[in-house]
Simulated assay, not measured.
Amino acid sequence: MHAFFAMGGYAAYVWPAYGVFFIVLLADWLVPHFRRRRLLRELRERIARQDARKERAIRPSTASS
């Protein structure tokens, strides 16, 4: 078992490569999730601003009259 983990003397290169691979794999899985959440939040905010703008155009304020 020790020989397997030592990787024939190349363990200092092999195990970090596995670590970097799994970090990149995790990032590749998480980044689209966070990007989707951010885009959906921005879209909801944009729709809310448009709705508010339409509401103001339909019912002008009495203070400006």
Rank of each mutant, 00 (worst) to 15 (best):
F4W: 09
A52P: 03
G19T: 07
E42A: 07
W15K: 10
A27G: 14
V20M: 02
A11W: 10
H2Y: 04
L25K: 06
Y13Q: 13
A17R: 03
S65A: 11
R56I: 02
S65Y: 12
G19I: 08
L26Y: 12
S61Q: 09
L25W: 14
F21V: 04
Y18P: 02
W29M: 10
R38P: 01
L39R: 15
H33L: 12
R37P: 00
V31C: 07
Q50E: 12
R36V: 01
Y18V: 15
W29A: 10
Q50F: 05
T62Y: 11
V14D: 04
V14R: 06
G19Q: 01
A63W: 04
H2I: 10
P60L: 08
A3K: 14
F22P: 07
W29Q: 08
I47L: 12
D51S: 06
R44F: 01
R37I: 13
Y18K: 00
G19D: 08
G9Y: 08
I23M: 12
R36P: 02
A3T: 11
S61F: 02
P60N: 10
R38Q: 15
V20W: 03
A63T: 07
R53I: 04
M7R: 13
L43A: 15
H33A: 10
A57S: 11
R59P: 00
A3S: 11
A17E: 00
R44L: 05
H2T: 10
A11T: 03
W29G: 03
E42L: 14
R38E: 12
R49M: 02
A3M: 04
E55R: 15
R56F: 03
G8C: 05
A27M: 06
F21L: 15
Y13K: 11
V14W: 11
V24L: 15
I23E: 06
A17M: 09
A3L: 09
H33E: 09
D51T: 08
A52M: 09
R36E: 09
M7G: 00
A57E: 15
P60R: 14
R44M: 00
R36C: 02
Y18D: 01
L39E: 14
V24E: 04
F5H: 09
P60S: 04
G9W: 03
G8N: 05
I23R: 09
R59V: 11
P32K: 10
A12N: 12
L25Q: 11
R36I: 02
G8P: 03
V14G: 06
G19H: 07
R56P: 00
R53G: 03
F22Y: 13
F4P: 01
I23S: 10
G9A: 05
R38C: 04
F4R: 05
V20C: 00
Q50Y: 05
R56H: 08
W29C: 08
P16K: 06
E45S: 10
L39F: 02
G9H: 05
R56E: 07
F22K: 03
W15P: 05
I47E: 12
L40E: 15
R59T: 11
A11P: 06
Y13N: 06
F4N: 01
R41A: 15
